[in-house]
């Protein structure tokens, strides 16, 4: 259960100065063929001599053959990974975690709210929705620090052509930026009024998630219709090592996807929870 399988980096897309998307395939072709996963799940990624880190799928299982993981350069492992050229081998084990409830979301209007690398797991969901065609309208609100930091630009272009209402904002503008300036919550009023079948999927920095969830609640979304995915320090990915312990939940097996309802019901009295209210 801790044994990684070898995967080759087939392609690398530079999303911005700190984020790269890796297209990967298991070198065992049989294993690759039988490999399945769902949006919202994650893999434990091994890089030689650097240990492991949990990384969410950025790709959708509707496009088999390879998987994509988007990685922000942050620590030792991710820095080493960023230095590897295409053709290099890494180790992967998984998939782990509870995915987004794709079945239950069928037919709903989806409002995605993302910040920075937080778009990676939602990219998996958006691609899944577009490929399967079973979902309602799709709106994406995406916040970045500066115009140069806007990641997944090629995807955003494709999504726009496919009918996704993509609205971008940056915290700090530069001279040639024509779009919205301000944190991602400043885009929320533009989406009003929300249809009665709207479900929102939120991912980004913890502070952003907090503010977005508060505003979505004020906009009338029910707790079960606000879904987020959480990031924690993890070592095993299978609910044993204890690191992602949150009340009686383990983020790695009980999450990382949680609805606001699940968060407030199960960890309402727990101070360790993020300040979701």
């Amino acid at each position: 259960m801790y044994l990684p399988s070898q995967a080759v980096i087939q392609d690398i897309t530079i999303e911005n100065s700190r984020i790269k998307t890796y297209t990967l395939a298991f070198t065992d072709k049989e294993y690759q063929r039988n490999f399945s996963y769902a949006p919202g799940q994650f893999m434990m990624v091994s890089v030689p001599h650097c240990g492991e880190a949990p990384i969410s799928f950025a790709s959708s299982p509707t496009r088999p053959g390879t998987i994509e993981l988007s990685v922000r350069k942050a620590g030792e492992l991710t820095s080493r990974l960023h230095s590897l050229p295409a053709g290099s081998m890494i180790g992967l084990r998984g998939p782990y975690g509870k995915p987004f409830p794709m079945e239950e979301l069928a037919g709903k209007d989806l409002l995605f709210v993302a910040g920075g690398i937080g778009l990676a797991p939602l990219r998996s969901v958006i691609t899944f929705c577009l490929d399967s065609g079973k979902y309602g309208t799709i709106t994406l609100l995406y916040g970045s620090r500066t115009p140069e930091d806007i990641a997944f630009q090629a995807d955003i272009e494709m999504w726009r052509k496919a009918g996704v209402d993509c609205r971008l904002t940056v915290d700090e503008s530069s001279s040639d930026w024509q779009g919205n300036v301000g944190v991602v919550t400043t885009l929320l009023p533009q989406t009003m009024p929300l249809s009665s079948s709207t479900v929102s999927l939120v991912c980004g920095p913890l502070v952003m998630i907090d503010f977005v969830i508060k505003e979505l609640t004020q906009m009338g979304l029910k707790d079960e219709d606000i879904i987020t995915t959480m990031e924690r320090h993890m070592k095993c990915g299978v609910g044993v090592c204890g690191h992602c312990h949150m009340d009686d939940k383990m983020i790695c097996v009980d999450g990382p996807v949680f609805s606001k309802k699940e968060l407030t019901e199960s960890v309402a009295h727990f101070q360790e929870k993020p300040t979701v209210t």
């Binding site: 880190a53 942050a74 620590g75 991710t78 913890l206 990031e231 924690r232 320090h233 070592k235 090592c241 204890g242 690191h243 992602c244 312990h245 949150m246 101070q271 360790e272 993020p274």
Partner: peptide
């Protein structure tokens, strides 16, 4: 490892979603 260690939940970059007093 021990859950009482301050670094138990610390993430890369130093952010700790769980305060050490807990």
């Amino acid at each position: 490892d021990a859950c009482t260690f301050a670094g138990f939940t610390r993430m890369v970059g130093g952010h700790n979603p769980v305060s050490s007093e807990h």
